[in-house]
Amino acid sequence: MSWKQEFVALAEPVDGRVPPSFEAHHIAVAFILIGREQPLGRYELCRRMSIGEGTVRTLLKRLTESNLITAVSRQGQKLTEDGQELYNRVTEDIPIGLSLPLRKLAVFGHSFANRVSDKAEAVTDGIRQRDEAIIRGGAGKAGATTLVMKDGVLVIPPDDFKILLVYEDEALLISESLRVEDGDAVVIGTAVSENLAREVSMAAVLTLFEGD
């Protein structure tokens, strides 16, 4: 089972119960935050996500019951051995994600960019990723822009528009901050809040793994 399939399964209803209020991209965001900052407390995780405290509590319960995280006294949650193995697989594909000040390139006031290794060929025109961000974040609240690195230059498909020509500062910021390599994709989630930008970026990233 791929790491995406594991997150999708964790977001499904259990034993005919009401579906949870979180989705696969919420689980991915929470799991990566815990992996990068462990131990991470529940209240801090709530502060970093757009979903409510009760939903976060249920999400953490799912991860705990799946033996992916465990509590460290009052310090918060950390990955188990199984969780670390899953985290390693996730970060092999998504090695880095950062909030970046992309005022010119982004539509909304907050942006979060994920580098996706070796997924440039999975991007056709970026519309699928944009639409997914809008669906998950809400029309008028979120969107996404997808870039690919070709011959050392960040371009926007399908016309391979070189963003360096118009947005030089932001193109260099993305390339250097995310350490983008040829063949990589960069999915920039943009939204009315930092938390939502992080989440819609991940939702858009997941569309690049639809065959996995």
Score class of each variant (00 low, 15 high):
Asn67Gly: 05
Ile69Gly: 07
Thr64Met: 08
Leu60Ala: 03
Gln77Pro: 01
Leu10Arg: 01
Thr55Trp: 13
Arg74Asn: 03
Ser50Val: 11
His26Gln: 07
Ser66Phe: 04
Arg17Trp: 00
Val18Phe: 09
Glu53Ala: 15
Leu45Phe: 05
Leu60Val: 09
Arg62Met: 06
Ala30Gly: 04
Glu65Val: 14
Glu81Cys: 07
Arg36Cys: 05
Glu6Asn: 08
Phe22Cys: 01
Ile51Arg: 09
Ala9Leu: 02
Ala28Asp: 02
Ile51Lys: 03
Phe7Cys: 10
Ile34Asn: 15
Ala28His: 13
Arg36Pro: 15
Thr70Asp: 11
Thr55Met: 02
Tyr43Thr: 08
Leu45Met: 14
Gly16Cys: 04
Thr64Ile: 09
Ser50Lys: 03
Glu53Ser: 11
Ser66His: 14
Met49Trp: 02
Ile51His: 00
Trp3Gly: 00
Gly16Glu: 01
Leu33Tyr: 15
Glu65Thr: 13
Lys78His: 14
Glu65Ala: 15
Lys78Leu: 12
Trp3Thr: 00
Leu59Val: 13
Lys78Val: 03
Val72Asp: 01
Thr58Asp: 12
Arg36Trp: 13
Arg17Thr: 05
Val18Asn: 03
Gln5Gly: 02
Pro19Asn: 12
Gly16Val: 05
Tyr43His: 12
Ser50Pro: 06
Ala11Thr: 08
Thr80Val: 14
His26Lys: 03
Glu53Lys: 14
Thr70Lys: 05
Arg74Trp: 01
Thr58Arg: 15
Arg17Lys: 10
Leu45Gln: 02
Pro39Phe: 04
Leu40Phe: 11
His25Met: 08
Phe22Pro: 02
Gln38Glu: 15
Asp15Leu: 12
Ile34His: 06
Arg47Met: 05
Ala30Asp: 08
Ser66Lys: 11
His25Ser: 10
Val18Asp: 10
Val8Cys: 01
Val72Phe: 00
Gln75Val: 15
Ala24Phe: 07
Ile27Val: 15
Thr70Cys: 14
Glu81Arg: 10
Asn67Trp: 03
Glu6Ala: 12
